[in-house]
Nucleic acid binder design. Structure first.
Length: 261
DNA sequence: AGAAAGCCTCGGCCGC
DNA sequence: TGCGGCCGAGGCTTTC
């Protein structure tokens, strides 16, 4: 569930702890999988003061007076802050809170806690993450940046769907946003990136920015126009044609048999 | 029971 | 034929 729009909402939530000092941090073996050990998180974060928040694609960043703290949410991770008012957060996956699903977090000097709630254990904490490995952020992608996203050095390149999901090309597009961008642009997800016509590229860029803006306003990556037809045997909400599906870029992909070509 | 919205690793193979 | 890099498949993990 967490694609770029969800992670951006987590970042806005995390703004509430800017200025606070971390008195304690903890992480289980899964949340700390990218660190040298689970205790490395607790050691590194203690005493840090949060100076700001940031984000690149699906990677959320807490800036501090020391190391930068990175958080990834995998497929089911949600960021929560509990305070006197109780659990405060957004749910996109299992729509309930289970304390057994809290994989790690931070406690601040005002006793609030920032929690990683993650049933499937694919969320990760990082210390000074390598933001430079990621492409430009999808929420602010310019046409110039997009042209590099669809640029292919040699051969025909990967399917455009796979390229859109490549976080080193553009950071933040997940499976649902990728399908929605292609659906709105009327482009077949299997099209080799290097074989896209200039007209298709233009349509894709317009669709890209429009999808980000529209779904952000609607409130989530799962609120795209094609979602109603996202099941085997579904019909395109735009023209009524049968939807096709298959695995592209390693993920289940749905597209319209008529208007996406 | 099978599939799931992220990400990492590995191995095959393409192209120079 | 050799090598580096690209690209796709598979695995992780738990839930509904």
């Amino acid at each position: 569930m967490p694609e770029i729009l969800e992670v951006e909402s987590y970042r806005r939530l995390a703004e509430r702890v800017v200025g606070r000092t971390i008195v304690r941090g903890w992480a289980d073996g899964y949340a700390a999988k990218k660190l040298s050990s689970p205790s490395a998180w607790a050691r590194a974060v203690k005493g840090l003061t949060v100076t700001g928040t940031s984000r690149r694609g699906k990677l959320m960043l807490l800036e501090t007076d020391g190391v930068t703290l990175g958080m990834r949410f995998g497929m089911t991770g949600v960021l929560l802050i509990n305070d006197a008012a109780g659990i405060d957060g957004l749910f996109y996956g299992p729509h309930r809170f289970n304390s057994g699903w809290v994989r790690g977090g931070l406690e601040f000097d005002d006793s609030r806690k920032l929690l990683l709630h993650d049933p499937r254990r694919l969320g990760r904490f990082e210390l000074d993450p390598r933001v430079g490995d990621l492409g430009p952020d999808a929420l602010t992608l310019t046409r110039r940046q997009f042209d590099r996203v669809v640029h292919v050095e040699r051969g025909d390149g990967p399917a455009i769907k796979a390229r859109l999901l490549d976080q080193s090309a553009v950071a933040g597009v997940g499976n649902l946003l990728g399908d929605e961008i292609l659906f709105r642009a009327g482009v077949d997800p299997r099209t080799a990136t290097g074989l896209l016509s200039s007209e298709q590229k233009s349509r894709l860029f317009r669709s890209f920015t429009q999808t980000m803006r529209t779904l952000s306003n609607r409130g989530g990556s799962h609120l795209g126009d094609h979602m109603d037809a996202r099941f085997p045997g579904g019909f395109c909400p735009r023209d009524g044609a049968i939807m096709l599906s298959g695995t592209i870029g390693g993920r289940t992909t749905y597209w319209c048999s008529a208007h996406q070509h």
